[in-house]
């Protein structure tokens, strides 16, 4: 493109193109929250309800997933404004639900849960997924609307 040939129409089209490129690249955060939300349900279900060695395997996989997520996140070339706005509130809400799950598993859940305890354990596992799944829905829905 030549500097002197840039018309208003071309300029607006280029702005639209860059906007689309940036927003396509921003989707990583929504996908990451989605994976984290689904993974945390499996993690707590394994920790609460499955026999050995499932909890140990879940813990190792969780640490690996956390590490991989961190590497994936820092390698992205775009950080969206929505992601930045949600990042800390969602992190704190998620941390609170995770602490709640730890306390539930450590102090309330019997060693061999049965009946309503199984339902309660599954409900707690689902609760821990609410913050990341909500963030994923919010970010990906906004992308779909654009």
């Amino acid at each position: 493109m030549d500097d002197h040939d840039l018309s208003a129409d071309q300029a607006l089209r280029e702005i639209g193109r860059m906007r689309r490129e940036v927003r396509r690249s921003e989707n990583w955060a929504g996908r990451l929250f989605l994976v984290a939300g689904l993974a945390v349900i499996l993690y707590w279900t394994a920790m609460f309800l499955l026999p050995d060695p499932a909890p140990a395997i879940a813990a190792v996989l969780w640490v690996a997933l956390t590490g991989a997520s961190f590497v994936y996140a820092v390698r992205q070339g775009v950080q969206g404004a929505e992601y930045r706005r949600l990042e800390w509130p969602v992190t704190f809400a998620w941390l609170a639900t995770m602490v709640g799950a730890v306390l539930f598993g450590g102090f309330l859940l019997p060693d061999e849960p049965a009946g309503w305890w199984v339902a309660a354990a599954l409900a707690v596992a689902l609760c821990t997924a609410v913050p990341p799944l909500w963030a994923a829905w919010w970010l990906l829905r906004r992308k779909a609307e654009r």
Binding site: L6, A11, E14, I15, R19, V22, Q76, G77, Q79
Partner: peptide
């Protein structure tokens, strides 16, 4: 209002922050 700077500004306006390689 020059092609390269317009693209840069458009990208930065659409995001919070953008990396050089992107």
């Amino acid at each position: 209002h020059t092609p390269v700077r317009l693209s840069i500004m458009a990208a930065l306006a659409a995001a919070d922050k953008v990396e050089f390689r992107f």
